[in-house]
Design a protein around this nucleic acid. Structure first.
Lengths: 331, 331
DNA sequence: TAACACATTGAAAAGGTTTTCACAATTTAG
DNA sequence: CTAAATTGTGAAAACCTTTTCAATGTGTTA
């Protein structure tokens, strides 16, 4: 029914081998054959069946990026970086979402085990380290943005401990000593690391850790509001709030605005991620920026290297972050 | 090197045909064989090669969603709808981004022509109607969110003309007669349709169309700011502004806030899309909501139907939108 | 002129699966 | 107790490529 390489061969009066050679731009084929084949291809509207090709070559030149959801807009830059690195070596990047379901994550990894893709990058996996380690033994897996403790799979991320520490140190340097933290109950390693950084910054400045100043919520802006409400209703409320994501920080500021706090003066805020909305929101949000594009680019480069390597690289690569200072810290 | 169905067959002491039958849960196979095969599979850590399977079955049960970028967070709900419908029939949804490049869009469609996926959904294509029509003749393509004039390919969208008209009519009903429009220079059909709706609403209320009140910018919040600045510096500035997207509206409100306008009173705003940030931003943004999830779900259902159908359905389906009224219109 | 290198080509194997077909063994019907 | 139906099974074909190998033909060298 569908036109195959055989049909092209017949139409061009050559063998299928020759058609294949022309299509793959092999050198040893005559000008005449090239013309005949190209004409036939054009005429019949032929496009090669990748299933046949991929099966024979045992390679698809496709990489799967597995993300929790497309909601988190800051994935966007990571994907762009991944694509840039992939295209440079003739790979395509496909994206699939898990919706935070480890079973579905495993299902998607099935595409890797079954060779429907050549490699997979996990952006914030829900599977545990042991499972991923086991899979990483036999398959081409990498992690990006998020590391996992005791996981020896190729990983590209930032130093979230240091990032949290830098962020909070900055708030303290601004003259604040009562620092709130809004983080998440459902813990990713990055949240945990940022919280560790928060504690280290307090220690750096001889400020005792006060667990009252830490609110555990969810990832939504709504939860940021709740967190801020909780913190500001403490007997001795904080004067600076560090949130482990911009979305949460925006929610928190939302609450502060509604209560008339003067953001940047009475109360300062620091977010994380530098999502595009963080400088659309008024007041503009100070935040920690991580090199999304660079992380995406690097992880793909390393992953592709690993495909060819005999001894795969299972290292952890840490890229530098930076502070972006805006209205919300009075800058 | 890699373990195949043959290895399993050997280990289980049966033929490859039997292994295949067990794996695909065919009825006519003995309990004994089932046990033997399952053991062998377990022991060898076998997972079937999808390239072989898909080639043989001429089907991949994968659908490609082609989007401009993962930046636009409101795609997220559409994707969720698509996945729900797909999973229900054992299909997977893969996402790929074009970055607004028609060439890259064509490259991705290559996965469809080459049978690496069974169908493709375009969410905001950059290719022209004629090209898509031609491709739609031979391949399983659908469009979602965005229609194209003179394009007879299965399409699921909303009535953007009516939506724009409803939005502007609401602003007028609120007592305003000087209505600004911030739209985009690089035109998608939805922008065009919303602009038509804007004009129709003016006509509905005998308000003459004034081209000074229309600003053509880009899709970024930044451009919304510019648009608002332009409009408010007119000799007789508008008292209500309709933006063709929430992101643009948020930018516009940003400018208005910085100039001290009382949003919801002196100046009212209406956006489009109901992105999650539209009710995080203070003041909360009134907007037009489109049924993203439902559109995604429907387009996949129809697309899968088309795969089986002898005469494919090339209709345009229009789902209902609604107004979401918040602070920015004084509600 | 013989021997040889080189360019171009096609037949066939290979890649891993599913499915058809035929066959044997068993059960059921008459 | 025989004929017919059913069940379980394996060999081989099919899906569509790429690639290996051998063969042909041309041109070059000795």
């Amino acid at each position: 029914m569908s036109v195959t390489i055989k049909d092209v061969a017949k139409a061009a009066n050559v063998s299928v081998a020759t058609v294949s050679r022309v299509l793959n731009k092999k050198s040893n084929v005559s000008e005449e054959a090239i013309r005949a084949v190209n004409n036939a291809v054009e005429e019949l509207g032929y496009s090669p069946n990748f299933l046949g090709r991929d099966l024979r070559k045992s390679e698809t030149r496709r990489i799967l990026a597995i993300i929790a959801s497309t909601e988190q807009s800051f994935y966007s830059d990571v994907i762009r970086g991944m694509e840039a690195a992939a295209f440079a070596q003739n790979y395509d990047v496909l994206i699939a979402t898990t919706h935070d379901d480890p079973n579905h994550e495993m299902h998607l990894l099935g595409m890797l085990f079954s060779r429907a893709v050549d490699g997979a990058v996990l952006l914030g996996p829900k599977l545990d380290a042991a499972t991923i380690n086991a899979l990483g033994e036999k398959h081409n897996i990498a992690m990006c943005l998020e590391r996992l403790d005791n996981c020896n799979v190729l990983t590209v991320t930032i130093d979230n401990v240091k990032a949290g520490r830098d962020a909070v140190n900055y708030l303290i340097r601004k003259g604040h000593r009562k620092i709130g933290l809004i983080t998440t109950l459902q813990r990713s390693q990055s949240s945990i690391d940022r919280e560790i950084g928060y504690k280290l910054a307090l220690k750096d400045n001889n400020i005792p850790y006060n667990e009252e100043y830490v609110y555990f919520g969810g990832y939504e802006a709504e939860q940021g509001m709740r967190g801020c409400e909780y913190l500001m209703n403490l007997p001795s409320p904080p004067t600076a709030i560090f949130s482990i994501s911009d979305t949460i920080a925006i929610g928190a500021m939302n609450y502060a605005l509604s209560k008339g706090y003067r953001i940047g003066k009475d109360l300062i805020f620091m977010g994380f991620d530098n999502i595009s909305y963080s400088h659309m929101f008024v007041p503009h949000l100070s935040t920690v920026e991580q090199p999304c594009y660079a992380q995406g680019k690097l992880v793909i480069e390393k992953l592709i290297e690993n495909m060819k390597a005999t001894i795969p690289d299972h290292n952890l690569y840490t890229l530098p972050h930076s502070l972006v200072l805006r209205d919300s810290t009075g800058d």
